[in-house]
Design a protein around this nucleic acid. Structure first.
Lengths: 237, 237
DNA sequence: TAGTGGTCTAGACCACATG
DNA sequence: ATGTGGTCTAGACCACTAG
């Protein structure tokens, strides 16, 4: 005989069906705890445990005093977990950002990335010391942040990590865009390959708690020197 | 006056320090619930609530009967949440996988991807009907799965979704690898571009609950027709 | 067999939002 | 003022693991 699942899970599954079946639209009021206790004949603790599951699945939203409302009709089924920036960046810890030029970012550059604040621009390559460059990199740092730290010609690790360690920035969200391009002359020259060589262009926008862009990086990884890997797991239920 | 945080959070923070300070190594035994109750003068429910937080942060691991052990000394700070396969694939819902050739996958192909089981190979393109192809695609489906469903020449959406909907597969983990390449003649011809055109090569491995590879897809997105975007948020604490 | 974590009940007080 | 969800206690029984 299959052992029956715990009570709170049975209640959660019953409630989940109310939502995923479409009988409860997003925004609709959800029954209060006491009603669930009575309807399913369970204690409040058990009902709350069930509601906790639905909350963690993102199906409902609860507010003290106000009540519970339906938030979504289906739950995200997969999650990628990332341990640190270094993991996100997927650079070996021993790579260095070697800066060849720096200065204020011009209007055209800011326009190209849709930036409105004032930024400092750093151009260079990323490599393991004494190895061929892995990528040609441009980093734009918001001026107030760039002034808060000293940036030398050789930055081990990443600029954002430096900013976070210095306490001037907490990154709250990163968006990343990747596409294939052929390298133009300047990027090709920077990393010593032929113009037109296929490359992975990656643009990352780092946002702070106010959702303002704090740092933007654009990098070009030529064919054969880099691959980006992610693993996505089904959420444990 | 700042209101003091709830008891269970205070206990959780105290316990967390025990771990992150390094006084408790990964693998070390963690105090049992009753000891925490006595040490902090709280009820078992409150202690459990604190332990739940540490569990969700991945800092400890609990096993009924066996006890609690330290799992890691720091918690993943970022998480990417993905709502569905369609979101993962980032194809518009109306794209179609048009199959040009199909048959058993040959030894060389299996070797190239490190596969040991027997697979069926499908070659074709992905596109919005009546538009230029977005990508040249090869899909390898494990033979037992391919035989379980009927595969026509035009598959709307994705093969894995089809398999999941039919109930013959539950995908538990997807790994994805992306890099830039120049297109070879056959892929270039399939999507009507010049050989050597830069393209984003994406290989996805879909694994079932036993961690066996169920489906593998390789796609080539030429320059300008596709960009891959992800957003990663700091975990709310 | 002893001790652990998992589930469940009954009851209480509180903070907060809404009418 | 009422009802909501958030926190907390005290106590109980059970399933499981390990010595």
């Amino acid at each position: 005989m299959a052992p029956s699942p715990p009570l709170y899970r049975q209640v959660a599954d019953a409630l989940r069906k109310e939502i995923t079946s479409g009988r409860l639209e997003p925004g609709a009021a959800f029954p209060p705890e006491m009603e669930i206790c009575e309807r399913h004949g369970v204690s409040r603790h058990t009902a709350r445990e069930a509601l906790r599951i639905l909350t963690e699945d993102g199906l409902i939203e609860r507010r003290r005093g106000a009540g519970t409302v339906v938030k979504a009709t289906d739950a995200p089924a997969f999650a990628q977990s990332i341990g640190s920036f270094d993991h996100l960046l997927q650079y070996a810890g021993n790579t260095v950002f070697e800066i060849a030029h720096s200065g204020a970012a011009d209007e055209e550059t800011l326009d190209r990335f849709g930036l409105s604040d004032s930024f400092v621009r750093l151009d260079g390559v990323r490599r393991v010391p004494a190895s061929p460059p892995q990528a040609s990199v441009t980093v734009l740092v918001r001026r107030d942040l760039a002034e808060a730290i000293k940036i030398s010609d050789n930055v081990p690790g990443s600029i954002t990590k430096r900013l976070e360690d210095a306490g001037c920035l907490t990154v709250d969200r990163v968006t990343q865009r990747m596409e294939a391009v052929g390298l133009d002359r300047s990027h090709a020259a920077a990393i010593g390959v032929e113009p037109g060589t296929p490359a992975l262009r990656t643009v990352r926008r780092y946002r702070d708690r106010t959702d303002r862009i704090a740092v933007l990086s654009e990098s070009f990884h030529p064919q054969g020197r880099f691959a980006y890997e992610i693993s996505i797991d089904r959420r444990s239920r």
